[in-house]
Structure formats: C-alpha cells, structure tokens
Design a protein around this nucleic acid. Structure first.
Lengths: 320, 320
DNA sequence: AAGCAATTTGAGCATATGCTCATGTAGTGG
DNA sequence: CCACTACATGAGCATATGCTCAAATTGCTT
C-alpha cells in the first residue's frame, strides 16, 4: 500500500513541490493527508504547495467563456474592425491586470502556434507578454519561426529582463531569431550602422514578413515602462509627450491617432516598427487603466487588428 | 471602482461559477473577497468555486515532470519497446487512478492533435478515455479525422454513455466518423450483415488505417467494465475467463500473451480489432491494480506501443 | 391556487490553511 | 574553527474553507 514514504531521497525540491501540488489540486487531498503520505510535516506540505503555485509548476485554466466577456469581445470586434479579441474576466480593483490576461494571451498564442502551416511569429517584449509566455504549455513547433521585433540589449548593456522570445522559443521548440542589438542606438547614425549589417537586415526582413505579431503596449504617463526600464529619460519622455505621444509599441512612440512621431527617441529606435496590418495579424496584449489612451490610439490608427485585454479595460475602451 | 456589483443579471449559473473560480485560482483571492465583490454571501461564493471545479470549468495542469515518474517511463519504454510512455504521479492508496491519468492523457492527445500533417486518430471508449477527453482544451483540428473503433449503441439500444468520439470531436473541431452500430451484434450473422453495408465498411477501413489510436483497457475480473455495462453476461465472462481471457480492448478479448480469443463474445463483436502496431501508434490509457494483468498481456502481445498510466501501475508492471 | 418535491440558501461550526515568529541548520568567509 | 548570513523548519495562532442542518425558495403537479 501507500504508507508514509520515508522521504524519497532522489527527489529535487521542485519535484516535491510538484508532487504536493498534484496531490492537492488534482487529487483533491488536504495538506494534512499529503504531509502524512509523503512523510513530512504539514507545514512543509503547505509550503510545497504554495511554492508550486508561485513557481508556476501548476497552471489554472478556465475552460469556459464568460458571457459578459464574450459580449465585450463582440462589441470591440465590431467597433474597431478587429480580427481577434479576447477579454479576460477582471480581477477587481486593486489587482494587477497582467495576472488576468496572461493565461488568456497564452491560450491565444498556443492557438496560433497550433496552426498546421509554418508561420513566422514576431514578438515584442514587456512584462505582460513575458507573463503570458510563462503560462504557455510546452509544444513542438519546429515548423514555425519566432522573430524578435526589438533589440535585446538594455541601456546598461545587459540582456533585457523582459526578453520574451528566448523563453517562448524554449517552451515551444521553434526556430528563433533574436535581435542582438540595443533597443535604442546612441544616435541615428549608430542605428544605421547596425542596420547595415547583413544578418541584422535579414532578421528585420523576417520580422516585417511575420504572419502574426504579438506585442505589448506602453503608456506614456509617468509610469511609462520605457522610462522605468531606463530606455529613455524623464526629460525625453516629457518632450515626447509635448510632441503628442500617446503610446508605444516595441519602443516606437505614436500619437493619439496612431501615427508614429518622427522625433526624439523614435529616431534612435533600432528595432522594427509595427505597421498597420493588412493580411497579417498584429495582436496587442495589454490591460490596465493607464494603458487605455495608448490602446485607444493604437486602435484608431489601426496599428493593431487583435487585442487581448481584461474586462475593465475593454469597458473603458467602449465608453468614449 | 469595483464595489459590490448588484448581482449581474445576465449571467448564467455556470458563468458565475466560472467567474468565482477565476477570481479564486487565477486572482488568488479569498472566497470572502469574492463574495463581497460579486455581492453575494460567502457561502455562495464557496459553492460556486467548488461547483466550477467539479463541473470541470477549471483545469489544473502540472507543468513539471517528476523525476521519479520519468524514471519509470524510461524503464517501461525500454522493457516493452514502447514508443510513448507517460506515468502520472499516483494519488495514493484509495484514490481513483482515472483522476490521475486523465490530465496526462489529455496532454498527450493534444500533443498528437497539434501535429501539422493531417492525421487519422482512432479512439475507443471507456471511463478513462472519457475522463481524459473532458480535460482536453478546445482547439482547431479541421485537418484531422477522428474515427471510432467501436459501435456506439448499447445493448439497450441507447447511445453508449462513454461515447468518447463525439465529445472529443466537439472539443477539437475535427471531422469525425462514429460507428452507428451495436457494440456486439446478436449473432455472427447479424454482424456480417452490418459489415456488408458500404458506409460501415468505409468507416472501418478508415479506422484500420489510423496513424494513432487511443484505447482503454478492460480487466477480466468481476469488475470487468464490459460486464458492468451490460455488454456481456456474468456467464459469458466466466466462459471467456475459462478460455484464457486476460483483458479486452474495445471489447475484443485477448489472452495473457495478447492473442485474441476466437470464441464467445469475440465472434459477435462488431467493431474494429486493434492489431499490433507497426508504423502507427496504439496508445493504451489505463491504470489501477486490477488492470495490471490486462495491461501486461497487451504489452506481451505487442498489441500496444504506447502507454499512459500512473505510478503504482507502472511499478506493478515492472515488478514481475 | 395550494401542496409537494427538489433544490438553494445562509448560519454555525469543525476543520484546513497560511502566516509569523522563534529556533535550527547548512553553507561561507574570516 | 568560529562567526555570520541566509535559508529551512515547526509551533502556535488567526483566518479561510467547506460541511451539516434547518429554513426558504423554486418549479411542478394537482
């Protein structure tokens, strides 16, 4: 029988956490039972379960679309002529909307990657996309190509934290093409030098030919991620705002009608600009009150034709 | 902000359950908070969450392979020359092993269906497969064909409860070919009549050409599902046992070396027999102590070349 | 419209969970 | 070899969860 195991010796800590979480969520046992079965204190079992959750060893996935969210999806789709809209149930006032949209975005990315024909998928960066990628399940996608729209080198020279493409490629086993250049060059001249390099040119060409693109959207208020992560200074940010900046996609700043500014940091951006999609899909993954103006602008300029957001944001986008 | 919603009127009960579960598992809120946010009693919130779990609106998925299970997989793979082995962590003594293997089997079925090339997938029936299918996430698989190996008409004339193919096709949106005939004919003659029908012949041909097959495995002790579901009588079962019956796949009974008996109910079975795979894959999804002899027999006869089971069963299969 | 059965509801309570804190233990650098 | 830091552990407790039961509601039949 399954009496207390004397603490299986050849088990990594994460193994134990995974097993405890399995017994808890899949098996529906109490932590007390689990502790006894695994020969440990109830404390430890509790910690293992909570560890498994926080380390993302266990995923929760809702297999049911709320009708209220579906209604918002339909309305948004019509209003902005979008091809894809997903609205995640809101998590209420204080919560981080990233938590809410990440699992939904993950499902959509998986759905795209499940396609039979080989695709080129371009991806941006950012906290939200990063969180989404963490939720993607592993799959075999050798037929697809993943390409980054944006350099992976931070101002301080390190690889950017929110580098999404590598993690995604890891999970889905697809060929991937990161862009080994700074996000912003020091000058337009330097940027042109990078762009003159042949391998760079090919990667950028690939990115521009992507069938599907997933990007985050950055706001331009004082919490602008582009500033918080040290890509531009507060002064530059203010200058861009004065020039009409409403939002930003892979670092490219656009005004409230979704037109890219020909000014300031945009002149140094070394990455690929997302252009209004025609046959291809450009899906923005973003939610939160402070992103509403940026999203609205991107939508009016038809910079995107797909949107993954949450309930309150969807509502805000519909209330003019 | 998000103060108590006065009980959203246009929400189905399942909608509410899904929303509560979302807030609970994804949002990490307490049921008390959820109740306040949704304007209901804590009780109700509690019930909604537990309902969402029991109705399968929310799925738990482990994104981490336990090393002890991986070791068992490797050993089984070698010992029986299998192409695919997955071992789910056991849920301990009393628990229903179906609960344990269903999510793992679901992942494997998804993985197969994610394939780029069009496939023919044949499926059997049974409680275990049925539970696995409930765990599969929805996907778009128009390129694939799903075909049933077994009739979907019970002895009492109703459609069989554990009919798997329709549910699976529903979820994954694939073309599907059920077999509108009884599981067992009344006589060999009647069976031949069914088989003479042209559409039936084509479906059976399709089933025999399947690239991948997923089946359950039935035991031959007094808990034999084939008897419990009224397909054969206790007397027939005993007769088959006396003739050496060790297990059953889609109703076809085989002996301990995995050879089909040419006897009894096998003479009336109207479905397609699973033959030892060559290029194709035949994956058995089964676990539990009482299934060990049936599994062992199927493995010795090379009736299957893939196995999804749980830890205790894997261990039992390895201890001779 | 009344009566009945079946389901839903909330109160109260036993149990399970998770947090804090004091203590222990391993690993590191002097 | 000792001192120190960082992290792991278990006890105790406040809180969250889920079960039971009695009351209320719903839907259905007469």
């Amino acid at each position: 029988m399954n009496l207390p195991k004397q603490h299986d010796p050849d088990a990594t800590p994460l193994d134990e956490a995974a097993r405890a979480a399995w017994l808890y969520y899949v098996g529906g046992k109490t932590q007390d039972q689990i502790a006894r079965e695994l020969g440990m204190s109830r404390q430890r079992a509790q910690r293992l379960v909570s560890r498994a959750v926080s380390e993302g060893l266990i995923h929760f996935r809702l297999e049911h679309s709320l009708s209220s969210c579906m209604a918002l999806e339909a309305t948004l789709k019509r209003k902005y002529a979008l091809k894809l809209v997903r609205v995640a149930p809101g998590l209420g006032a204080g919560a981080d909307p990233t938590k809410s949209i990440a699992p939904i975005a993950a499902v959509e990315i998986e759905r795209v990657l499940a396609s039979a024909e080989p695709l080129v998928m371009a991806v941006g960066t950012g906290r939200t996309l990063r969180a989404a990628v963490e939720q993607i399940q592993t799959m075999q996608c050798e037929r697809h190509k993943l390409v980054s729209l944006i350099g992976n080198i931070s101002p301080d020279g390190s690889a950017s934290f929110y580098d999404v493409i590598m993690r995604l490629a890891d999970r889905v086993h697809a060929a991937h093409y990161p862009m080994p250049l700074p996000v912003f060059a020091d000058s337009p001249k330097e940027r042109d030098m990078f762009h003159a390099l042949d391998p760079m040119r090919r990667t950028m060409e690939l990115a521009r030919s992507a069938n599907v693109t997933f990007v985050g959207v950055g706001q331009m208020d004082d919490t602008a991620p582009i500033r918080l992560d040290g890509f531009i200074t507060q002064e530059e940010l203010e200058a861009m705002r004065n020039a009409g900046a409403a939002g930003e996609i892979v670092g490219w700043i656009y005004d409230e009608s979704g037109r890219y500014l020909n000014f300031g940091s945009n002149l140094r951006n070394a990455g690929v600009r997302v252009l209004p999609p025609e046959e291809n899909m450009v899906v923005a993954v973003a939610a939160g009150n402070n992103k509403v103006p940026a999203l609205r602008a991107a939508l009016s300029g038809n910079l995107i034709n797909g949107l993954v957001t949450d309930e309150p944001t969807a509502q805000a986008l519909l209330n003019p």
